[in-house]
Amino acid sequence: MRIEISRSGGFAGMTRTWSLEVSPAEAEERWLPLADRAAEAPQGEETRPERDQRDRYVYHIVIGYQEVTLPESRLDEPWKELIERARRGPTG
């Protein structure tokens, strides 16, 4: 399954996109539950940067039917791993 990651904002305000292929099993087990949880979080809580943070990145991640917007300051370790993998792979 294809996962698309776009990163906007940052000091430069430049949007970059990366993608990677994961097996359907990996998507079901690891990424979709995480995305579902993030998407269910109350609007304005999880999608906004933490108070007084400026020039940080905003990530928009699309996994199959699910998409989530996550400010950099709220990225947990599994998401960082996913982004790192996508950045190392071929860009799409």
Binding site: G10, F11, A12, R51, D52, D55, R56
Partner: peptide, 9 residues
């Protein structure tokens, strides 16, 4: 790390 930011402090 490819950014510079202000964290409130």
């Amino acid at each position: 790390y490819d950014n510079a930011f202000w964290d409130g402090e």
